[in-house]
Computed example of a mutant assay.
Amino acid sequence: MTTASTYTYQQIARAIEHLTANFREQPSLSELAEKANLSEFHFQRLFTEWAGVSPKKFSQYLTLEHAKNQLRKGAPLSDAAHEAGLSGTGRLHDLFVTIEGVTPGQFKQAGSGLVLAYGVFDSPFGKYVLGEINGKIALLHFLNDGDEPESILANAWPEVTLRQDAEALHELVNQIFPTTANATMSHPLPVLLRGSAFQLKVWEALLKIPEGRLASYDQIAEAIGQPTASRAVGTAIGSNPIGYLIPCHRVIKKTGLFGGYRWGVERKQAMLGWEAARVDG
């Protein structure tokens, strides 16, 4: 990914923000192009290249009715194979995630002397910082203006030594956001998650939501065997440290409203529309 792709996302995000806030009025192409500071022609072309569908089609994926239909279909969380959770046609390759979970206490005992390698990269959804410990992804955090990657990493993993080494992470980056149509997975993507037993159960359940589908907080609570814990599920989802790969963006309110997102509502909406377009495609 290049810096140009991040700038493209920023332009698209402004249009998506306006589109989502006013989807009932179905904003015109000229309105959306103005929000992106582009001519109608260039906006239509840029948006279609980024999303794979026209702005009009994309807007259909962001309507309340579409979200409700997705929830009514129900993501097969109870019987979906863990390995199939992130297999996505839209990514043009099979993407698998395997979780290694530890409690904070367990990690504290074993964390002395560990090094976290990190780098800042571009994606279809803006810049993000990626952190890796012993070959395992320990953090994927999308960045907003003013964010300091080192502070984010230090807060998430205070026991480890930070080492900036973007070059060492390129193989992982190319598997998360492939830049070529024939990109393939050589092996599962391992992630290192530090959390309580409850948090780990929630994050594992998120992996079972198929790409292009949605689930509610209540459905996640049911899937982990605690149907009355939807509020606690929401808290666990909000603390997910690995964006996109652990797909907390696929969880919305049972009313069909998208709800909040740790890395910004417009980014969540961009991800959901982007995935829906690829699955339908």
Rank of each mutant, 00 (worst) to 15 (best):
Q175D: 09
W50K: 04
N134E: 15
L245S: 11
K73Y: 04
P158A: 06
G113L: 07
A84D: 13
R213D: 13
L272C: 12
Y261C: 08
W203H: 07
T179G: 14
G195A: 04
Q175C: 05
F142C: 07
F121T: 05
Q219H: 01
T179A: 14
S78M: 11
R163L: 13
L19I: 04
R278A: 15
Y244A: 01
R72V: 03
I137G: 01
K127I: 02
H141S: 03
K253Y: 12
F41Y: 10
P241S: 02
A215L: 05
G135C: 13
I137V: 15
N144S: 14
A117F: 09
Q44G: 00
Q11E: 07
E211R: 02
W157V: 04
L92R: 14
V279C: 01
E222K: 09
A276G: 09
E222F: 08
F258A: 15
L86H: 00
W157Y: 08
T228Q: 14
Y217Q: 01
F107T: 03
T2L: 13
D145C: 03
S230W: 07
L200H: 11
D218A: 15
G101Y: 09
P227G: 02
S39D: 05
G259K: 00
K68Y: 07
A51I: 02
I224T: 06
L64W: 11
G52S: 06
G225L: 13
P188I: 09
G260V: 04
G256S: 02
I176F: 03
R267Y: 09
A13L: 10
I152G: 10
H249Y: 14
Q11N: 05
G74P: 00
A154L: 11
T20P: 00
A80P: 07
